[in-house]
Design a protein around this nucleic acid. Sequence first.
DNA 1: CACGTCACCTGCGTGC
DNA 2: TGCACGCAGGTGACGT
Length: 281
Amino acid sequence: MPELPEVETISRILREGTSEMPSLIGKSILGADVLWRRSVATHTAEDFDIGIRDQVIKEIGRRGKYLCLGLSRDVLLLHLRMSGDVWLESPEKLILTHYRVVINLKDPMDGGLFRFVFNDPRKFGRIWLTSDPETILSGLGPEPLSEAFTQVGFYQSLHKRHRQIKPLLMDQTFLAGLGNIYTDESLHQAKLHPLTLSDQITVGQAESLYDSIRMILKEGIQRNGASIDWVYRGGGFQNHFRVYQRTGEPCYNCGTPIERIIVGQRGTHFCPHCQILSDNP
DNA sequence: CACGTCACCTGCGTGC
DNA sequence: TGCACGCAGGTGACGT
C-alpha cells in the first residue's frame, strides 16, 4: 500500500500511536527476526539482528515513498513497494504467513514488550539499515508538498524533458511520491491526457497539474490514504476515486465512460472527453 | 536520453 | 472443483 499519502499515514500512526497501540518513539530494540532474507537489502539476517540491537527509535518520518525511522546510531529505511505494510502489535500474537521481518521492542519506561511487523505478501518491499540514508535517498526528486516544489520549477522541469507525462510523474527521480493511483487522479483533475508530452505542456496546464497533484495528495492524506482489496489499512480515499478503477463508469464531470489503457506497462484510467490529447507529432 | 521488456513475487477474481 | 489467465498501490536491470 504505498504511495505518498499511505506512507505519510503510516508514518503518522507509528509516530503518534493510536487508541489501540502506543507510539514507536522511545522504544528500544531487543533484536530482529528476518523471516525472508531478501527483504533486508543491506545486511544478512544475522548482521541485521546484531546491528539493530539496543538502538532506540528516536524519530519517524517519510521521504517520497520511504518510511524513515531514526535510531540511536543508524536510520532504518523501509519501502513497502506493492504489498508491504507495517504495524505494531503484541508479541503474544501468532506469526502470520506473510511476515517478512519482525523487530522486537521494549518500552524502557514500563518494560512493556511489542512487536514491529513488516508484512509483505509479494516480497517486493525492502529494508535498509544505514548510517548514511542519503546514499539511498539522494536520487529522489522533490517532495510535492514541500515549499521547494514550486509552480515555476515544475514547469521548467517538464520542459527539460521530452516524455509522456504519466510515466514522468511516476518517475521518483523526477518527483517523489506519486504512484499509479494518485497520478491518474491528478491528471484527470488537471484535464491532461496521460500521453501528453511533457515539453508540450503550457504554463496554464502546468499550473493546473501542479495544483491538482498537491490537492489530490492532500485529500489522500486527509482520508488516511486508500485501502484496496486485501491490502487494507483503514484509509478511505478508495471511496473517492474519480477515475482509478472506474473503467466504463461515467466521468463525474461529463458522463463519458472512463477508459483504461496501458501506459508504461501500467493500467491507466482517464476520461477521453475531459482529457484530450492535442496531437503535435 | 527515452522507451520497451523482463524480473522480482503472491493472491484474487473471472471465465471456461 | 480445477485451472489458466489477467490483474494488482513499485522499482530496477537490461537492450535498442
